[in-house]
Amino acid sequence: MRELSLHILDIAQNSIESGARNIEILIDEDESSDVLTIVIADDGKGIPPEILKSITDPFVTTRKTRRVGLGIPLFQEAARMAGGDLEVRSTVGEGTEVIAEFKLSSIDRAPLGDMAETMALLMVLNPDVNFRYEHTRGYAKFVCSTDALVEMLGDTPIWSPSAVPVIRSIIREGLRNVQAS
């Protein structure tokens, strides 16, 4: 995938399918340590230990439609290409956390891409899930959540197609303010 924001969209789909009510997406661009950290955390049903230990193996999947599970291995490959790695922590009944680290300045690091689009579509298509997105760069931080956006949208329901451009522009402006890459 060309953009890390597409990997994030993909991993968040796993969280949605796991029945999560709350999904948190954290991005931290730390120039002092030259590390980009991406965390996707959910309170879904969790992954049993026997599947978790081979989660980064593309030939392991619980899906029946295709025998290869590519989401996590592809994201891990993107992290490793850029001098980082990926880890999945999960507890059955509590939730799952996917943590990916990249060397921020690596020329092999895929661009973050359009996070505003990824978040706007996730929030509008999944109005029953409370999303929280936090983007930190140095001392600057932008936070938005489904709850806060429902209020900002006023009479426009969050599940309405016309909510997409509003949310997209709120997030774009927020990311500009923290000078996100």
């Binding site: 597409l6 993909d10 590519l70 197609p161 016309s162 997409v164 451009p165």
Partner: peptide, 22 residues
Amino acid sequence: MGTCGIAAGARETLSAIMDELA
């Protein structure tokens, strides 16, 4: 919106649908 769909451009397709509906 599986991995295969997203890799093939499903996000952009979805954005276009939402935009057209709006």
